[in-house]
Design a binder for these strands. Structure first.
Lengths: 193, 193
DNA sequence: GTCGTTTCTTAACTTAAGTGAACGTTTTGA
DNA sequence: TCAAAACGTTCACTTAAGTTAAGAAACGAC
């Protein structure tokens, strides 16, 4: 299972056997059940996550309703906002499916950075890359209608449409479940005609 | 003018006089006229920008229409996507006002990083912080209606409402200029009643 | 200053999302 | 296993954004 982690790291830096052993010696792998809440609003967690298998999501609760803002699946890394700015979290993180992930915190990272300076460089590269990717996603969202966003999702992450409940997808697309149903019906109708 | 730059850097690391001199010795300050285009779609620029005074924006042209996705004002840093992923740019960058900014590129940054390893750390911190900030902005956009977005903007960046043309603001809010006019009239009406 | 362009607003009409409710299906847990 | 809860779809109605068009105001170039 940790091969997924090493494959991911290999995209940024090359690890020696010694370094792999150092990582394996730290106990960071966790298995969590569908529906488990990893982080709640108001908590000051220090944990970052990396998904090896499964799916987790971030969501707000606004006027009593869940508003899902992101899904993280295999090879996705998530450092919650509260870890960076050391303030209580505004949102929740929970498991969409039974999920296997790594849990790390800033102290552990600092320790690894001290032992292997390569990691500092990897972290910077990952942050920059993620930032750029985020920008593009944000731009795509801003410049699209809900229908276009759904069609984009069909292309870019078709697996999500299968593994995520409709009402979570709907709020991820910025609309209500009823509108998603209607929108899907509209698309099917167009496909026929 | 470069005091703004040093104030900004001071938020992340402490500079010695020697380091400040090293920065000043590189010629990075530029003055650009309102309307100038800093980056066009298709270009493979290596330049990053830091706004000292003025305002620049990023925008796409979709179906012949400009779609503004971000504004950068005093103390904002912008590393275009094309610099990170070394691909032709999908979007444009231009000046909303006469603007003074610094222009740097990866080579210059590498040179400074080599001389002063502190910078590598600053860049990582900035990236992480920006990433977290971006997430929050994205979440805010997703979970808001156009009207709520406009009200948020009134609170968080009231200066933008003054210095940016309405049609650019509208596309930034994800709507048409006509809808922004209507929305503003609606808000005024509510304020009265 | 004037002419032309860009910008902003208003209005009438169209289209799509929000709302509230009903109903069948699936999932869940006691 | 069975009842309750959660989920997805459909419908009728409301609300807000898109579209098209027109006109007023501000801005710029000459």
């Amino acid at each position: 299972m940790q091969d997924i982690l090493f494959d991911f790291i290999a995209k940024y830096i090359t690890l020696t056997e010694e370094e792999k052993n150092a990582i394996n010696s730290v106990d960071i792998f966790r298995s969590v059940k569908k529906g488990s809440v990893l982080l709640s609003k108001g908590q000051r967690s220090k944990n970052s996550y990396f998904v090896l298998k499964g799916c987790i999501r971030t969501y707000y609760i606004i006027d009593g309703e869940e508003r899902t803002t992101a899904f993280y699946t295999e090879m996705d890394a998530l450092t919650p906002h509260c870890v960076i700015n050391k303030a209580p979290s505004d949102y929740y993180i929970s498991c969409v499916e039974d999920t296997i992930l790594t849990v790390s915190n800033l102290d552990m990272e600092a320790e690894i950075n001290a032992k292997f300076p390569k990691f500092e460089i990897m972290c910077r590269k990952m942050s920059e890359e993620l930032l750029a990717k985020h920008q593009i996603d944000f731009d795509g969202f801003k410049t699209s209608s809900p229908e276009q966003r759904y069609l984009n999702l069909m292309r870019s992450r078709p697996d999500l449409l299968q593994r995520v409940p409709q009402h979570q997808l709907a709020s991820y697309l910025g609309i209500k479940p009823q509108s998603l149903s209607r929108l899907r019906a509209r698309i099917l109708e167009k496909d026929k005609g």
